[in-house]
Design a protein around this nucleic acid. Structure first.
Lengths: 341, 341
DNA sequence: GGTTTTATCGCAAACGTTTAAGTTTGTTTG
DNA sequence: CAAACAAACTTAAACGTTTGCGATAAAACC
């Protein structure tokens, strides 16, 4: 055995045509049972692997689903990915995982690749901003269905699976206030995509409902990037504006912000508490307690797959986009509180 | 615009043949400059995306590299993946990331898919055991080159990028002994693949060199699985055999073991210290200090890519497999030691 | 025994590209 | 001015499959 085995080769050996081999392997009852057996035996012996490209070219189906994920370092995202690729298998698909690294340019390349690959659908957790709205829209028009997860792209009419971001933000504020916090920073992008808008509005709503006024000075715009978050907090601390908590829109930001706070010599959570969304492992690295919103990432991923498969199988049925919302849960990690001495 | 745009369609519009379009887009000087411009303009306007399948079918190159990673929850692996997919881009390839979840059956499916996809090469961090040796060998014979990273597959003659596992294990023991530990457990598989063998032999060597005898009772075989690790430690504790440290072969195991120890009411690291390989985020979740070996995962990934590309570009040159070894580094995380009160 | 049915396979086109080898002009050269 | 050449395309085959239709022969039917 050497080089790739093709249908044609198998056909030659058995003195039949490639068509016969193809049908035999797919158990077509066009072919006699004994021939099927012979074919399968030879295929197994020769280690035949069907060429997906050739097959897809004629069948117009790849049984591959594209998955765009912001990154794999944040455990929320990798759990989403797990939910996706495990679920996808059950439907007979394979997941092609691509990372945009919170970067529109990367995301564009991902989309171009996936559409060139002719995947049967794309599950996306998109970057903030609308830099790629055009290509997203175009790709969809080309016949590739989209489902957005985590961050919804409502303006594009995609189906989506998200969490109750606004409400989650409100209860985070509630908990902080209950803990005696009064000056709560908001750190992250405030617009661009729905999640951010919703968390931001939840932040404002939470402040109002708990008798704390909204103070624009406490809102720090910041990219979804660890270093950017670190520097933003570092700069803010220099301003000497008092604050006792930071609400971060994600784990990457929380980690950066937390480091800056610790480096400045403050205690977390006594001096300054930090909160984030996603219950991310990386935040635990800070070695201090933190408040987080658990978002059932595995469920988000697998539900997104369900929606996608439904969308592929019943294309007409779906006129207007469906938006599923998953209830989140507040968690407090008492990291560093030793259990026993 | 709707449905996919093909070369043929562009050709029809411009009244030329598909061949002309193809050449124009690749800037062949077979085609006049003005025609090239016209073609490119139209292609952009129509949102043309070359069909990778059709292209690869004739060119025999996909410019895709398969990547098999044990899982994405362990930050060591996701960092390897990042090293890989970022590096791969620089060479004009795309990475197709697949997860085996430490399961041979999954890995087999991954391999079958990737060979069906006809990727130009496969980077693999394989499951322990030799269940897939046959298919690995066969796939290689079919003309798909392999590079193993993290865990080497020396018996198969693959090129590899690994760390200095044995030495790393020795210095872990050294540090534990320096901290006064005397009865050190070994938790994980002890054979199957080189990493495990090397860490295990490093464990033994470390004990000898530090005047502690090797005690087989302190070796607990265990699958690379969180629950399995949890239960193994739980059962071991019941036996009332004293121990004051656990050397875990990886993050997943360390997390499970750590939980079992904490649940049993012991203090980490005072009563029982834990160590692992990979500097994994998930271990930080335990909220206690731990000793770990940092293995430069990003570097492992990117070097594996370099080797692969070299292998693809100069297939003859490589007779005997090349093994690169990356020096690791000991790190102690003082998680839970509050910086200021 | 002629006709219809059934079983088993071959034929050929098609999928969207790429590419070596033509073909048709027009231009240069000795 | 014939011969060689260059520019700008076109032709056609190929890549490895799938699939509807056609072909053949044997079996079943009335």
């Amino acid at each position: 055995m050497s080089q790739k085995v093709t249908l044609k080769q198998l056909a030659q050996i058995l003195n039949v045509t490639p068509a016969t081999i193809s049908k035999a392997l797919r158990d077509s009852n066009d072919i006699s049972i004994e021939t099927r057996k012979k074919v399968k035996a030879l295929a197994a012996k020769m280690g035949y692997r069907p060429n997906i490209m050739a097959r897809s070219l004629v069948s117009k189906r790849t049984f591959m689903l594209g998955v765009i994920v912001p990154n794999l370092q944040i455990s929320f995202f990798s759990e989403c990915a797990r939910g996706i690729y495990e679920r996808v298998r059950r439907y007979g698909y394979e997941a092609i995982i691509m990372v945009n690294d919170e970067n529109a340019e990367n995301e564009r390349k991902n989309l171009e690749f996936l559409s060139s690959l002719a995947v049967d659908g794309i599950l996306i957790d998109a970057v903030p901003g609308n830099a790629n709205h055009r290509i997203l829209k175009d790709t969809q028009k080309m016949g590739i269905p989209f489902v957005s997860y985590d961050r919804s792209l409502d303006t594009l009419g995609f189906h989506s699976v998200t969490i109750d971001d606004e409400h989650a933000a409100v209860i985070v504020i509630e908990k902080l206030v209950a803990d005696g916090k009064k000056r709560i920073l908001y750190l992250g992008p405030t617009s661009g995509i729905s999640v951010l808008k919703n968390r931001y509005s939840g932040y404002q709503k939470g402040l109002e409902e708990n008798g704390l006024g909204f103070d624009p000075d406490l809102v720090i715009p910041c990219e979804i990037d660890q270093k950017n978050a670190y520097n933003s907090i570092k700069e803010f601390i220099k301003k000497d504006i008092p604050f006792d908590a930071v609400m971060c829109v994600g784990g990457m930001i929380a980690y950066g912000a937390g480091k800056a706070i610790l480096d400045a010599g403050y205690n977390i959570p006594n001096d300054i508490a930090i909160t984030e969304f996603g219950d991310n492992d990386i935040v635990a690295r800070l070695g201090v307690p933190f408040l987080t919103v658990y978002q059932y990432p595995y469920k988000i991923g697998s539900m997104a797959v369900d929606m996608m498969v439904d969308l592929i199988d019943n294309p007409v049925k779906h006129k207007k986009p469906v938006h599923k919302i998953i209830k989140s849960k507040l968690i407090y990690h008492d990291i560093g509180i030793k259990r026993k001495l």
